[in-house]
């Protein structure tokens, strides 16, 4: 859930099975499927994307998402990771 809420707050670009796609993040769901507007790709190399406006990318095919460091508070991220780790280990103790 962490990354779901994390990406919801961002506008950025991303990269895939060797294809790089840049765009404005429009929406994201729990599978980390992503929708980008204002899509920019290397159309000369990938004519597959001629005339493309917005794109839905299946989360499972994403390798990396490159983020703008200025729009992310890494301290908050680390805290959120610890909190999520704590929460899930708590679940396990309760479930035992």
């Amino acid at each position: 859930m962490l990354f779901f809420s994390f990406f919801k707050t961002l506008v950025d670009q991303e990269l895939k099975n060797d294809v790089k796609i840049t765009g404005t993040l429009r929406s994201i769901d729990q599978y980390l499927n992503i929708k980008l507007d204002n899509v920019q790709t290397d159309v000369a190399k990938y004519p597959h994307f001629v005339a493309v406006r917005s794109v839905f990318i299946r989360g499972s095919t994403i390798r990396y998402i490159h983020l703008n460091p200025n729009s992310v508070d890494t301290n908050l991220l680390q805290d959120a990771s610890r909190r999520e780790a704590m929460a899930s280990s708590g679940d396990k103790i309760v479930g035992r």
């Binding site: 980390l32 998402i65 490159h66 460091p69 992310v72």
Partner: peptide, 11 residues
């Protein structure tokens, strides 16, 4: 190089 990058867990 990348200043900040998300890596999907399945990789």
């Amino acid at each position: 190089k990348s200043e900040l990058v998300f890596v999907r867990g399945d990789s």
